[in-house]
């Protein structure tokens, strides 16, 4: 794809985000942040008995790339098992978003994926004790911009 096509793909997700919003009674509720940009993302995930994602939503604030990447991620991972999530490679995501477009903002591009992978690694130990993985929602993105 040409650079402009990658940009249009990102802008489409930024201006028309998919799966935006909160989920009632999620199995995982996790936050991620990128202090360089002030990006914040909160992921809500529902899982079935086999730890397969049956629904995923996101909320957040941040730059175009971070929000577009979060939107795209929700489409990319829906239906996948946490085992598969743990094995995802950043490069797969970057190749889709456009390596040339996001190369100077890799932290922004991978924020949502990084957050989800962290949750996928932590979840089994929580589940073993009969708990969900629920973090308090953190919306302190303004701290660095005060």
């Amino acid at each position: 794809m040409e650079r402009q096509e990658y940009i249009e793909f990102i802008l489409d997700h930024y201006q028309h985000p998919r799966n935006k919003g909160a989920l009632e009674d999620p199995d995982m509720l996790v936050n991620g942040g990128n202090p360089g940009c002030g990006d914040v993302v909160t992921l809500y995930v529902k899982l079935d008995n086999e730890d397969r994602i049956t629904d995923i939503r996101f909320e957040g604030h941040g730059c175009t790339i971070s929000m577009a990447a979060a939107s795209f991620l929700t489409e990319m991972v829906n239906g996948k098992k946490l085992d598969e999530i743990r094995q995802l490679d950043y490069q797969q995501l970057i190749d889709i978003l456009g390596p040339e477009v996001v190369k100077s903002r890799l932290r922004c591009a991978t924020l949502a994926m990084d957050t989800l992978q962290g949750a996928a690694r932590e979840y089994p130990s929580r589940k073993a004790t009969g708990q969900k993985l629920i973090q308090p929602i953190v919306l302190t993105h303004t701290l660095l911009t005060e």
């Binding site: 936050n31 991620g32 942040g33 990128n34 202090p35 973090q135 953190v138 302190t140 701290l143």
Partner: peptide, 10 residues
Amino acid sequence: LAMPGYPQEG
């Protein structure tokens, strides 16, 4: 160093 709960990097 950055926001609470997030990577304290930089």
